[in-house]
Design a protein around this nucleic acid. Sequence first.
DNA 1: TTGTAAGCGTTATCAG
DNA 2: CTGATAACGCTTACAA
Lengths: 379, 379
Amino acid sequence: MPGSDRGRATSDRETEGRCALADVALAALGSGSRESGGSVRGSSPTINDVARVAGVSKKTVSRVINDSPLLRVETRQRVELAIAELGFVPNLQARGLAMGHNSLIGLIHDNPNSQMVLGVQQGILEAIRDTDFALVVRPVDRGSPGMMDDVRRFLERQRLFGVMLLPPISENDLLARHCAELGCRYVRMGSARLDADAHCVSSNDAEAVAAATRHLIVRGHRRIGLVAGPHGFRSAKERRAGFEAALNEANVALPRSLIAQGDYRFDSGVIAGSRLLDQVPPPTAIFACNDEMAAGVLHAARQRDLAVPRDLSIIGFDDTPIAAHVWPPLTTVRWPIQAMGQAAARKLLDGSSDAPAPPSVFPSKLIVRGSVADLEVGP
Amino acid sequence: MPGSDRGRATSDRETEGRCALADVALAALGSGSRESGGSVRGSSPTINDVARVAGVSKKTVSRVINDSPLLRVETRQRVELAIAELGFVPNLQARGLAMGHNSLIGLIHDNPNSQMVLGVQQGILEAIRDTDFALVVRPVDRGSPGMMDDVRRFLERQRLFGVMLLPPISENDLLARHCAELGCRYVRMGSARLDADAHCVSSNDAEAVAAATRHLIVRGHRRIGLVAGPHGFRSAKERRAGFEAALNEANVALPRSLIAQGDYRFDSGVIAGSRLLDQVPPPTAIFACNDEMAAGVLHAARQRDLAVPRDLSIIGFDDTPIAAHVWPPLTTVRWPIQAMGQAAARKLLDGSSDAPAPPSVFPSKLIVRGSVADLEVGP
DNA sequence: TTGTAAGCGTTATCAG
DNA sequence: CTGATAACGCTTACAA
């Protein structure tokens, strides 16, 4: 019985009402199946089967499943009925072959922060919900010498509809160029405007960090340490720039001794925090360029029996779960990662629209928790 | 110049050496392109182009790219040369259409733990490295009424080679049945044996938790609290069973008052921990069924000015980053998530092999950090 | 060991 | 508005 398995698939609530058409279908299929053969051997029904059952041509069915406007309602209904009876599901492989591109969008990233990756995935999936698009993930290993070749091979073989590039790999201009060369649409996410509006969705980390830093300054802090992010990361650069700008505008000095470099990981935060806290006098507050490092600073403080926030105020960045779960919970900067993922995906899908893409810059927000205190003026 | 973009793609190191063949290629393509037309309009070269350039038939090229054993080395080389010259890349859509299935494997999950999801992804990607397979992710919303229909639609439309099911959704037998009905290979990951060996890769949470509990008992603890996981999660059931088994075998009593229920999230850990710690006398140790809840217990302890581990020992489960990052760092159970993902993917790919699948149960390991102390015997 | 012919299930073209 | 016919690029019989 052709497609009987599938028949149940789309319509679980379908009972035994209108099976007349289905019987016609069987009869029709039984005889001269010269073209598609889709009915043989229990495989699922094809567009040909639907056409035969509905008594129309292949192309008409195609028009129905592609929402073509030029169709008589009556015809459309007949076809839709046949589709329902047969439990027909269009074959994306075939469609992809015919149209020259598949319905997959790729997510390329080399991100150590799982929360972020998953947030973006979530956003993308929201954007492609109710479409036939699916999300293909491709983590890559920045630093590995063959990385770029790897990605190229991936793009060549999979022939995706388009890809989304996550930071920090999204900052790589060469990668973007490769995408373009391979005819693969792309959108880059970043902490600053990295590309033309059509290819870019970003936050404004510099501004967000400046606001966070002002939060410290307003509370009386003047010796403020920075745990910077790693070289080569645009986000690290942006965040540092925002930090310095805020200090500058308030005429607060930033001695080199109050800057320590980290690599965005917890351990580097412990080390950087230690170095900062061993200065004399130590800083009264520290901004760390991400939450993991901020948690590391917290560790370093605890190792020195410093109470946070009494003896030391700390602000992080990203608002990952760790920020809320350490003690005291960290004041930090939250950026709308999921919304950005969604916007980026939409931009990708709308790419062929005629209207020029609008710029997409998403605002971040300071989340105030318990790791910042007003500075007690000394005796 | 047909395929010139692509020509560079695979062979960046190719300089100007042997372009003779390529010229032949151009000539050949220029004239009677009656079949594929792959050379026209800058689109990428097809198997026909390769065949013409190499002076063999389509099928022979197909044999080469599919590693058929029956080919003269000479022929093979000629074809390979042509492939290189042209920068030919097989079209997966077309192949998928012809073979009846694509080269995508899906990851279906409804997991709140991002670390876990990403770990599995990593494992899968290792398993499919150097193949043409790609990974499609599909988070679903357990609890949403339309979830199962959703997944079915997804499977019907995408026609994946196979899917991997992550806990807790992997515990859903109905979902597995649907996969089978739709002709989609599947492998389930879980905290216990959920299915036939061919469809299952698991850890043994009960045993792991029993070991962790013994770790507490050996150190003198007798009043040990449990923060259980949510109903309906197999892992919660397994972990609790392991906990109770260890207490039993040591003849340690487990009053109901020392069991609190959580939902695997931080906040529930705080609440459950509070309830446990407010008992008189309070427990001297608590096992929480995952790290997030263990971190919550830590919060509850701190709110009561209890020192960990001096006044309270805590053990968690999963070894997520949070376990290492809170203070004190948590003793916890680590299970080989990435290795399991890899094994599961391999199982999926080997699915058609004749040999019966071996059982795959992966051992977990107690990670000892700073949250457990020997029990001081009271005065 | 290699080639020929016939699909795989869709969409595009261009006529009616 | 609808339909015949030809792509789309590859694989799998079945020959040679």
